[in-house]
């Protein structure tokens, strides 16, 4: 291990390798090309070796095999990462801006007295400096930041890097935990899956997603009529689910569903990075928003700067008229 290496925390989600792991490896390969170091993936938990093939972009894959790491709880994860990062001494540690990463990365940085940056989208190396572009304010502001401290702990936004075909030496090292682990004050009890019975938005060809711009619950009906006219279903961004106007099973984004429909109509959705993460792979995206600076227009193929309620009814009528002609 050298001070030029890039370390990646690989995550699993319900026993499958999380997409973010492959994205981070792609980012790490780019960075390692600049530092001249290796890419080291760290996977926590028993049976982690079964994911090694998928992590072939790494030069080394460290699997920390301990039953205390079978499910996420913050203290055991943090204790192991602190030990591994201390002993490996990498130039940077890439951690996904995920429910796990948000818990461990800041504390890891503080314990190691290492710099931490959130919302990282682009990372390049110039000499002894890491130049990072971070997204804040829901993606409406970008910050170009220079980090000199090492190791830099970088919380990387999902979707920032495309998984790479490039491979490394992929040498797998299955190791016991470097520190004695015991249950902490916070312990995992069970996973609670969403209730079955609602529409599975991941299987829909057409989704009409509503965001805060819908303004009132009473406006949801018009959006649903439009969705049905298109042969699709309603989805939503987080504020709508937080208001209980739609169930969590309809939420698109980081903590909701990842969808890839043929057509995604975003109505009054600002398009924060957390939302884009769930829908940016849709075949066709049309966004309607009154804010011309809304980040949703960065991923949309077509945009309309308009109050969504001014468009919903004429659009529903135009679609129904078209269907009547067909």
């Amino acid at each position: 291990m050298s001070a030029q290496d890039i370390l990646v925390l690989a995550e699993t989600n319900q026993e499958a390798l999380a997409d973010i792991s492959l994205e981070l490896l792609a980012g790490a390969r780019q960075l390692a090309g600049g530092t001249g170091g290796q890419v080291v993936a760290v996977l926590l938990g028993p049976d982690g070796a079964k994911h090694a093939d998928a992590l072939s972009a790494a030069d080394r894959i460290l699997v920390i095999d301990d039953l205390q790491l079978a499910a996420f709880s913050p203290e055991p994860y943090l204790a192991v990462l602190e030990s591994v990062v201390s002993s490996e001494g990498p130039r940077a540690v890439l951690i996904g801006s995920t429910t796990i990463g948000l818990d461990v990365a800041p504390a890891l940085g503080a314990r190691l007295d290492a710099p931490v940056l959130s919302g990282c989208q682009q990372i390049v190396v110039e000499g002894d400096t890491l130049k990072v572009t971070s997204a804040i304010c829901g993606g409406k502001i970008l910050a170009d930041v220079e980090v000199k401290g090492s190791p830099a702990i970088l919380l990387v936004l999902p979707g920032s890097f495309r998984p790479t075909e490039e491979t490394g030496a992929a040498q797998v090292e299955t190791l016991p935990s470097p520190v004695a682990l015991k249950p902490g004050a916070v312990t995992f009890e069970e996973l609670i899956l969403p209730e079955a019975g609602d529409v599975d938005i991941t299987q829909q060809d057409v989704l009409v997603a509503v965001g805060r711009g819908i303004q009132q619950e009473g406006n949801m009906e018009a959006a649903e009529e439009l969705a049905h006219a298109l042969g699709g279903e309603l989805a939503a961004s987080r504020p709508i689910v937080d208001q209980d106007w739609l169930p969590t099973t309809r939420q698109v984004g980081k903590s909701g569903m990842i969808v890839k429909p043929k057509f995604y109509l975003a109505l009054g959705v600002s398009g924060a990075p957390e939302h884009q993460e769930g829908m940016s792979s849709s075949d066709l995206i049309i966004a309607v928003n009154t804010d011309p600076a809304a980040p949703i227009f960065e991923v949309a193929h077509y945009g309309v700067e308009m109050d969504l309620m001014d468009l919903v009814e004429p659009l529903t009528e135009a679609i129904n008229a078209r269907k009547g002609e067909a």
């Binding site: 940085g109 710099p115 170009d144 930041v145 227009f297 960065e298 991923v299 308009m306 468009l311």
Partner: peptide, 23 residues
């Protein structure tokens, strides 16, 4: 922990083709 060099708005409508006209 880091030096902010610049803060700015991302380019608007980099990909989206904006549709104009009446509703």
């Amino acid at each position: 922990v880091a030096t902010v060099q610049r803060m700015y708005h991302p380019e608007v409508g980099e990909r989206a083709e904006m549709l104009e006209g009446s509703e």
